[in-house]
Design a binder for these strands. Structure first.
Length: 223
DNA sequence: AGTAAGATCCAC
DNA sequence: TGGATCTTACTT
């Protein structure tokens, strides 16, 4: 297994587009209600916010500025932004970029490298499907909205019965990029190749176009 | 106040 | 392909 070291908050203060590929191969360990699960991250997506970086991000929860929902994205890097997707799934982002600007890296998939028993018990799935997709990853990690939104993965400070810690690996030699999954409109096209994954890894989730993204992609190549 | 859509997943 | 399930943001 590739060596990892504790993540430093300062190295997450870079913009999401820069941090996202660096999170591939990283290890997220969560201990919730006594059960510990460790994930090796294999797929991520970068999200900016209004005024973050050179490119605006129309696909971000923070595209309209600070709100109650996305408050964590504007805070200190190294915390986890946990949001509720489609009223069902708790999805996990690593907050990045400097405090006061919005930014996050959505953890879309991972390989369970420790605590498989707890992961299976939590999800009813097994093997590569345990954390293949952001909803599944959140479920296996045991992090839930709104209980664990804002938990600090640098200090390991407990929050509502959970502890999260993040360890980084050396940068990978080979990283694949492409459009983000399920993101509507032009933000879900090759104009925003903000999804990063480990090529060939079996835990990477299948690609799906977002609402109107395929049509927007045609427009981009058609003119 | 009402409604449509959403960084998803699963069963049909 | 549609339903689950609930929050948010935009429209009356």
């Amino acid at each position: 297994m590739r060596a990892t070291r504790p993540a430093d908050r300062s190295e997450l203060a870079a913009l999401p587009l820069e941090v996202a590929p660096r999170l591939l191969g990283a290890e997220l360990r969560t201990t919730v209600d006594g059960d510990s699960v460790a994930l090796r991250i294999t797929e991520v997506e970068a999200y900016h916010g209004r005024g973050t970086g050179d490119l605006p991000d129309p696909g971000s929860h923070a595209r309209m500025g600070p709100t109650a929902r996305n408050a964590t994205m504007w805070g200190e890097p190294g915390h986890l932004y946990v949001y509720l997707s489609h009223g069902i799934h708790s999805c996990v982002n690593v907050v990045c970029g400097p405090s006061g600007t919005a930014g996050g890296v959505l953890l879309r998939a991972g390989e369970v490298i420790d605590g498989a028993d707890a992961a299976i018990a939590r999800s009813g799935r097994s093997g590569r499907d345990l954390a293949r997709g952001p909803g599944r990853l959140g479920q296996v990690a045991g992090l839930r909205h709104p209980l664990h939104d804002g938990i600090d993965a640098i200090t390991g400070q407990p929050l509502n019965g959970a502890v999260a810690t993040l360890r980084l690996a050396d940068p990978l030699e080979e990283v694949a990029t492409g459009p983000r999954v399920g993101v509507a409109g032009v933000a879900g096209t090759h104009a925003f190749p903000w999804r990063f994954w480990i090529p060939g890894d079996p835990t990477v989730s299948p690609f799906r176009w977002g609402r109107g993204a395929a049509a927007a992609a045609l427009d981009l190549t058609g003119d």
